[in-house]
Design a protein around this nucleic acid. Structure first.
Lengths: 346, 346
DNA sequence: ATTATTTACGTTAACGATAAAGTAAATAAT
DNA sequence: ATTATTTACTTTATCGTTAACGTAAATAAT
């Protein structure tokens, strides 16, 4: 360093100003294409800025303007195709609008979620996109963001009771359809498997399932809901359930990560899919089509959810359209029928 | 806003100072646990800071200290289990050390990569972790970061010619082993399928493959390398190759995303895996075990690669151990044998 | 011809923090 | 008893930018 650093003057607005015999303010205004600056001057400024490869200092600017052009995405997991695609959608919109994207993973840990929000709430981000953990029941940590004037938008895993914009898929409807599909395939005993009873997506999907069951005059029994809260126990729970005499003949997994243990348990128990058990997963995994057997999925519009949430957030940050909408945006999922479900032969 | 904003005074160091009849500097030092401040004063400051829920303004601090406690991760894709796990590892280390993580996706677009680096080079990040696009051949855009005093560490997709730290898996060795495995299973005509000839990982893996072939006295023919540069053409290329009379009887996919089109092409052509074609993929997809048939993989230590790269970077940012190592860290992959490869029956 | 307005800049201050340098009082060293 | 040092602060300046306000000259309005 040493020598190089001494030689390399940091190119700031002041340097440009002194080289052009202008004031710092004029440089700033010129670079922002202000009407107050004449065309010839703007051109001189731009030329020198380009020549010296000037880039404004983010921190100085943010300190002054109280804007950082940065948003945060807080979500449970990234090694999940659904969330990965959501981030993809968010990043695409952010890039286009000149925003930066910070990523924070909660790993389903509520305390971590709380810490993260605490950690980012002061003057680091302009807005927040969040999908809560399956253990999040309190809302204070999120409400705090509003006090700091940081707009928050939920995606996928929302806190229903909060009056904030939400972007979700048609959880109720799509699970209703999935259930109907299983029923039409001849399933008599359908179970729903989820990672949490708390999550609004769980509730909605279960309600959709229950509606379909009720419509078909099938009594709802407690045992048809399987909660796999603990990742490490998930496989064993499924194994036990599927080994039981009164095991289901149809199974709806409301999150992708359950697919693997379901297939593994069936393999172990020598249960044939779909002959012995029909399976539908909420999944965005592209390998669904080449599983053994290929998996019928409720395919969620993950990329679009990300895009939409990011667009809503960045719009709300744009002073031009400052109306913060508090409504819910529902983007429908698609039931893709593959070989894990099939009409039973009589 | 309005009313609330007027009432809500922004809690800065100055506010604390005036409330405690101390100078701003004292507050700053007290909160940093400086030896210059007495215990009682520190306690008073801490108590008030906690009470008023004071959080330092990131921008002011970063402007002054020229540190942002933020690193950037620039990578081709996020909807790929390998990269998702790498990010997981990076985020874990970053969180632990109090760093923030910005994510930028290149989508294999070199110009986008260039733009991104341009975009982040000035006072926004303290360090950079990068996995280049398959089209990156120039290095200037990366070299610029050094001029800005931003340390750079490569992971997975490195620029071999640059003297910067690199974290990779044992590309050469693992592909050598994969090839040996196929040979030991009785394959006579093994192809390697990649997304790019440029990537160092491609080169290394191909070299490993070639070494195994040569060792087994099998002549290297050009046609045994299949380049699927274009995502949209990938399936068709594979289809054509596998339809040909002299089609391979063994196939090594050096990136995960090729698994899907390979299986699809085999399905379409009614080629049985592993009877007609044995397949190995470099893959971290957990569904490998439940594919039809289950897939033999070279499983890369993705999480560990992320952890290691992040640790190296954050260590190099720590003034205590400022020695920037320029060596390469190699973390071995594991060959996991499943049903897509099997010794041929005579 | 005089006043009003616009144009194209400049000056000053501030965002909130910290680094560098200063200082009064207390304590230690001689 | 005098000087040196330490303790525990304060004062001042600065990071790089932009907001708010100021102003001379040019142009337009009357």
């Amino acid at each position: 360093m040493g020598k190089l650093e001494l030689l390399m003057e940091n190119i700031t607005i002041k340097v440009l100003a002194s080289k052009l015999n202008l004031s710092a303010t004029t440089i700033s205004k010129a670079l922002q294409d202000s009407y107050e600056i004449s065309e010839p001057t703007k051109n001189r400024v731009r030329a020198l800025a380009a020549e010296l490869n000037y880039t404004p200092n983010t921190y100085a600017r943010s300190l002054r303007t109280r804007k950082s052009e940065t948003i945060a995405v807080v979500l449970p997991e990234i090694a999940d195709h659904f969330f990965a695609l959501v981030i993809n959608g968010i990043e695409a919109v952010a890039r286009e609008k000149g925003y930066h994207v910070l990523i924070y993973l909660t790993h389903e840990d509520y305390n971590r979620e709380k810490e993260i929000l605490e950690y980012i709430k002061k003057g680091r981000i302009d807005g927040l996109l969040i999908s809560v953990t399956k253990n999040t029941t309190a809302t204070e940590h999120i409400a705090v963001m509003e006090q700091e004037n940081i707009p928050v938008i939920f995606f996928d895993r929302v806190m229903e009771q909060m009056q904030l914009p939400k972007v979700v898929t048609n959880d109720f409807e799509s699970c209703y359809q999935a259930t109907q599909h299983l029923l039409s395939c001849g399933c008599k005993k359908i179970s729903v498997c989820t990672i949490s009873a708390n999550l609004e997506i769980s509730k909605q999907r279960i309600l959709g399932y229950q509606k379909a069951m009720t419509e078909n005059n099938i009594p709802l029994e407690e045992t048809q809901l399987l909660f796999c809260d603990d990742d490490t126990q998930c496989y064993h729970q499924l194994y036990r359930t599927l080994k039981a005499k009164d095991r289901p003949d149809g199974l709806i997994a409301i999150v992708d990560k359950l697919t693997l243990p379901i297939y593994q348990a069936c393999e172990k128990l020598n249960l044939k899919i779909p002959q012995d058990l029909q399976v539908i997963s909420f999944s965005n995994n592209p390998t669904a089509g080449i599983l053994n057997p290929s998996l019928t999925t409720v395919s969620q519009p993950a990329f679009l959810i990300g895009q939409t949430a990011a667009t809503l957030l960045l719009n709300s940050l744009d002073p031009k359209n400052n109306k913060v909408q508090q409504d819910i945006t529902i983007i429908p999922s698609e039931l893709i029928i593959r070989n894990s479900t099939a009409a039973k032969k009589l």
